[in-house]
Amino acid sequence: MVTGAAGSYRGSLMEVHHGFLAIWSGRGLTRLITEFLKSSVGRLRPDFLARCRWDPAVQACTGNADTILNGRRSFPSGHSSAIFASMTFMSLLFAGKTAAWCYGVSPPHASFRASKLARFSLTLLPFFCAAWVAISRVEDYRHHKEDVIVGSLIGISVSTVCYLMFWPNPFNPRHFTQQRLGRPRLLYTDDDNASRDANFELTRHEDELESV
């Protein structure tokens, strides 16, 4: 996983922890919504007749029961929602690490992040991958175009919400200071106070009582 590799490289257990929480919560919630809609709507897939193997003599489908049942679960596209949930997280993570979507931030010189075009292109690569998978579902006659569109929107929306729960907004310039560049959100700390010096030391309870 990208987030695990990045956190391990920087020696940050918090980045690994927040990264896995964000992506798996997004994937899990996306799967839950998609499966609920599939079972509730029951839309026929474009290749349902091939799955059904209709026999005019017996006036019934003669295909495999599981295949026929799966043929009634077209809306929304599970592949589209799952791939967009994963790729949206990666795109947001790249944008949060490079400030590609925050044009008011001056990137460091003499590095890959100094090129605005390179940073922006990097954040778009996951979306191209997700779009290719989603389009292939229509080309293979597994889904209607509406199934793919709605599934993609579910993956993008849920992944974005889950990302912002654990990572700062990639459009906000104040999250790209030298101290906070690419750092995850401190869930249990006020963000306005998170940048302050957090040095402290433990004392005995008796010392605290004497100082009161």
Rank of each mutant, 00 (worst) to 15 (best):
W132P: 05
T177F: 00
Y163K: 10
R137I: 12
D140L: 13
V161Y: 15
A134V: 12
A131H: 04
L153Y: 07
R174D: 03
V150Y: 11
L153G: 09
C129R: 07
V138A: 14
R142V: 11
K145A: 07
F171L: 14
V161I: 15
P168M: 01
P170F: 09
R142L: 10
I149T: 07
A131R: 04
V150C: 05
H144C: 01
R183I: 02
D140T: 14
E146P: 02
C129G: 04
H175C: 00
P168L: 02
Y163L: 09
Y141R: 14
Q179K: 02
M165P: 00
R183F: 01
F176R: 04
F128A: 15
V158M: 10
H175P: 00
W132D: 09
G182K: 02
P168S: 02
S136W: 05
V133G: 08
M165C: 11
P168E: 03
E146D: 13
V161M: 13
L164D: 12
V133K: 14
Q178I: 00
L153A: 14
S159A: 15
F166W: 11
V158T: 15
G151P: 08
I154E: 07
R174V: 03
S159D: 09
N169I: 05
S159W: 06
R142C: 11
M165K: 04
D147K: 08
H175G: 03
T160K: 08
I154K: 03
R180L: 01
I149A: 14
C129P: 02
W167D: 03
I156T: 14
Q179F: 00
Q179N: 01
P173W: 04
P173L: 03
M165A: 09
A131D: 10
V138N: 07
S159R: 05
V133Y: 11
R180F: 01
Q179E: 05
E146G: 06
D147A: 06
Y163E: 09
A130E: 12
F166V: 06
F176I: 01
V148L: 10
V148R: 02
P170N: 10
P173I: 01
D147M: 06
H143L: 10
G182V: 07
Y163R: 11
R183D: 00
D140V: 11
V158N: 13
R180S: 03
S136N: 12
C162P: 03
L153V: 13
K145E: 09
P170T: 08
D140P: 07
P170R: 08
V133Q: 12
W167I: 05
P170S: 08
